[in-house]
């Protein structure tokens, strides 16, 4: 293995690290509504929720966006990137998850701008500043990955991993689950992340933004739950 080449992947590990301060620890994407209804209360029920969230929402939004943004960047088609930024935002109908991801995207962008010297980050930030774009973590993540020459499939896979691992951390705190249970879930879902990545490669733009009603409902209902530790 070429250790000099492979050290690029460490840069992606850095973004997937739950210590990377994007604010993901304060968003549950509707999980908290299920916890309050006592529908998610242990390792088994949380795993069920995580599978549904991954396969019925995340792959059609963030996951498919990673794939399409990477392609657009390879073709130097920035208009397409900005179009996907808008699509990602306007397909997200629940206000809390929409505004939450926007804030995460902006925060991540500011961070990576101090780490990488690529003009695309300041272009994106300027567009957000002038309200031409919204900001989304999946887009920032893909921009970095493509910039440091990580492959398209790995980019999608790593992004899915980063979302899932933050969600597991959040579930460990909120349900609560033991740390070992949390690690078991992260271990068990790795094969599903690979399957999801393959599925994303088979999707096309017509599939963008599909969401299952229950998940979306839980994200809308979160606006009115009484006690909350998450912002979405």
């Amino acid at each position: 293995m070429d250790i000099v080449m492979k050290h690029n992947i460490l840069s992606l590990f850095q973004l997937c690290d739950s210590n990377f301060p994007t604010g993901a620890f304060s968003h549950s994407y509707g999980l908290e509504s299920y916890i309050q209804e006592n529908k998610v209360h242990n390792q088994e029920t949380f795993s069920e929720w995580l599978q549904v969230y991954l396969n019925e929402q995340l792959i059609y939004s963030d996951g498919l966006a990673c794939h399409l943004v990477y392609q657009a960047l390879e073709e130097d088609n920035l208009q397409k990137v900005w179009k996907l930024d808008r699509l990602l935002t306007v397909q997200n109908l629940p206000r809390e998850t929409r505004e939450g991801t926007q804030r995460m995207g902006e925060r991540m962008l500011n961070l990576v701008e101090s780490l990488y010297d690529a003009p695309i980050f300041s272009t994106y930030r300027n567009r957000i500043g002038t309200k031409q774009s919204f900001g989304h973590p999946a887009i920032v993540f893909t921009m970095i990955a493509q910039y440091i020459n990580v492959s398209k499939a790995e980019t999608t896979l790593f992004y899915l991993y980063s979302v899932v691992s933050s969600l597991v951390q959040n579930a460990v705190r909120a349900i609560p689950l033991g740390q070992t249970a949390g690690q078991k879930i992260i271990h068990q879902i790795q094969g599903d992340l690979a399957t999801a990545t393959l599925k994303i490669e088979q999707l096309d733009e017509e599939d963008f933004g599909i969401v299952s009603p229950g998940l979306e409902m839980s994200q809308m209902m979160h606006e009115r739950i009484n006690i909350r530790i998450f912002m979405s």
């Binding site: 059609y60 808008r86 306007v90 397909q91 109908l93 963008f208 933004g209 599909i210 969401v211 009603p213």
Partner: peptide, 8 residues
């Protein structure tokens, strides 16, 4: 400008 993309 696209403002809603509601896909079920």
């Amino acid at each position: 400008e696209l403002v809603v993309y509601d896909h079920i």
